[in-house]
Amino acid sequence: TRVETATETAWISLVTALHLVLGLSAVLGLLLLRWQFPAHYRRLRHALW
């Protein structure tokens, strides 16, 4: 049971790290898009909202 718990903890930390990385890359990508294509971003936002 001790090994299982350790594996579970490792998986949880791995998944958390993955989610953090994905979230950060998504935010960075959005910022980059907004910085590179302001007109396109505004049009996209206008279409979405």
Rank of each mutant, 00 (worst) to 15 (best):
R34A: 11
Q36G: 10
L22S: 05
G29Q: 00
V15D: 06
R2Y: 15
L28C: 13
L14A: 07
V15T: 09
T9G: 08
V15W: 08
E8D: 08
I12R: 13
L20Q: 01
V27C: 09
A17W: 04
A6T: 04
A6S: 11
V15G: 10
A26P: 15
W35Y: 11
Q36K: 12
E4V: 11
L33R: 02
S13E: 05
W11T: 08
E8G: 11
T1Y: 07
L24V: 09
V15A: 10
V3H: 00
Y41G: 04
G23R: 01
H40M: 15
L24A: 07
H19Q: 07
S13T: 15
H19L: 15
R2V: 07
L24T: 04
L30A: 12
L48A: 03
A6K: 07
P38M: 10
A39Q: 15
L24S: 06
T16M: 07
A39I: 13
A17I: 10
A26N: 01
A26L: 15
L20P: 02
T9Y: 14
A47W: 10
L20S: 07
L24D: 00
L30Q: 01
P38V: 11
H46Q: 14
Y41E: 04
H40P: 10
A6N: 07
L24K: 00
R45Q: 05
R45L: 11
V27P: 12
L44Y: 03
H19P: 15
L20M: 07
L20K: 00
V21F: 09
H46T: 09
R45D: 01
T1A: 10
W11R: 13
G23V: 15
A39L: 11
L22H: 00
W35Q: 06
L32F: 10
L20T: 09
F37G: 06
H40K: 13
I12H: 07
V21W: 13
W11H: 12
A6V: 04
V15I: 14
L22P: 04
L31Q: 03
W11P: 08
A39E: 15
V3I: 10
R42E: 08
A17Y: 05
P38Q: 15
V3K: 01
P38R: 11
L14E: 08
A39R: 07
Q36P: 02
A17D: 03
L48Y: 03
L28A: 13
R43Q: 08
R45G: 04
W11N: 14
L32H: 02
S13W: 15
V27H: 01
R34S: 06
L32Q: 01
L48Q: 01
L31S: 07
F37T: 03
T7Q: 13
T7E: 12
A39D: 14
L33F: 12
L18C: 11
A26E: 02
T7G: 09
L32W: 14
V27Y: 06
H46K: 06
R45K: 12
A17H: 01
A39K: 09
S25Q: 04
H40W: 13
A47G: 04
F37V: 08
S25P: 03
L44N: 01
L20A: 10
Q36N: 05
V21T: 06
Y41Q: 03
W35P: 04
L32T: 08
A10T: 08
T5P: 03
L48R: 02
L18W: 03
T16Y: 10
A10Q: 15
P38F: 10
F37M: 11
L31P: 02
T16N: 06
L28F: 11
V27D: 00
W11I: 12
T5C: 02
E4K: 06
